[in-house]
Each structure stands twice: as structure tokens, then as C-alpha cells.
Amino acid sequence: MNNLTELANKLLGDGTATKVIGYEEAHGKTRPCFCTEAADTGRLVLDERCTNNIAVYLTKPEIVGGHKVAVTATLPVLRTMVQLAMENQLPDGTTAIVSTESGEGLAVLPTVGDMERVVAGTPLDISGKERELRERLKAMSREERWQFWLGEMSRCIKCYACRAACPLCYCTRCIVDNNCPQWIQPWASPLASMEWQISRVMHMAGRCVACGACKQACPMGIPIHLLTLSLAEDIQNEFGVAPGSVMDHGNVLSTFKPGDKEDFIR
């Protein structure tokens, strides 16, 4: 029995949790899994192959309803949990199981405060590959960027996997499902896809933890995470709010400073 299984059994045993949301191995990859009893926990794994953001399940009543949940959390998952807590979406009593910094051991974070401390101590590092993609985008002329995104959006099939995989897209009724008015055309078209992405990214402003779940989920391989990443970078430059950092009050778009930049307003 590995340490993770042991720890999960302990949490299930002492009543800290009645359900563990974690990862299991399958088809040479990992995928989310759910354990409610000790017999289940043998399959749990937590390592660098765990790329799904399983915090997405924390806002699903079907999954967490009536349960006290423990989540085996990678760093992006932990960042998400902190953000969810800020937005009143983290179910009470949710516990995180994380790998310790050395990567050897495991630690239990029983409170949001504990999670915040770990998150605060581990600033987000955007990978070189993403950085390169963004640089390439920045180096384009406006017309080139437009053509680039138009091409990408034309491939969108509007399956909303980006929305479904994003742990911070938890609205009961998404704006695209609102037809009074029909904010965004419900069918797939470059315009509707672009409007959807603009909405999605605006809604993520200052909230996105840059986990990349949206991009990973896209069956068409559209690099939509570049939009959230670019915006996150601009927000960091403009307001000093780093993606995945903890704001003590409100959200980037629900707050303001009287001295915010306004050189574009004439």
C-alpha cells in the first residue's frame, strides 16, 4: 500500500472525508477518479502525469452533495481551490492532500488558510513553451493576429469542453445558454466562437489560475489558453495581481483604484 492510499484511508476512516477526489492511471495516462471507501483507494496516484484539474468537480452537486471531500491536489488544483474558496464555491470542510515540496511526502491541508499559504509560497511559473507562443503572437501585426485567431476560431466546434473542463466555469446557467437576449449565437461559427471565447476570457479576468485545462480539453487543439494567459499577464502588469494569487477583497473587475491607468481615454 502506498502512502497516498494510506493517507486517503486515514481521512476516510477518521471522518475527515467521505469522498476522495483523485487521479487513477488508465490507458497510459491519468484521469480523475472518486473513492468513497478504503477498498477504492489502491488506485490513487499523484504525480506529474496528473494534469486534469479535478477541482472542477468541487462545484458539482452531483459529486460533492452530501459528502465531505478530500482532493489530492496538484498545485494548479490547489490554486483553483483557493480561488473557489474566495468565490464562496469551495464546499465547507474540503481538505487538500498535496505532495510536500520535496516531492517525497504528502501533507494534508485542512483549511483554506493552509492552502493559501502553500499557494502563496509557490508562485506560478509559466512554461517556456507557452511564453514562446505568446511572444510569437505579440510579434504579429494586428491583422496577422486577427487572421490567426479567425483561423483558430473557424475550427471551433462549440463543444464547450473548455467550459466543462474549467474549474472556475461553474455558473448554473452559462451566458451562452441564456437566450433572453441571445448574447452569443448558439451555433458554431467563427463569430460565435470568438464571442464565446471573449466572454469566457473576460469572465476569467483575474480569476484564471493558468492551469491549462481549457487547452488540454479542446478536442480541436485550439490554443485558447493563450488568451487567458495573455490577459493574466496584462492584468499582472497593470494591477499587480498574479494569476493564481490570492486577492483579499473582490476581483480584478469588481474593484478599482482611483489611479488606474486611463491613457486610452481621451
Partner: peptide, 20 residues
């Protein structure tokens, strides 16, 4: 003030997308 922030963020996103 709220609007100003919204426009700052919005402009930056539109620019990333190549909207004029």
C-alpha cells in the same frame, strides 16, 4: 472607475485577438 478597469482588460483582450 469600474468601467475603466473593464475597458482596460477588454482592450487588452481585443488587441490579443487582433480586433481593431
Amino acid at each position: 472607475f469600474h468601467a475603466r478597469r473593464r475597458w482596460m482588460v477588454f482592450r487588452s483582450l481585443l488587441d490579443t485577438l487582433g480586433i481593431d
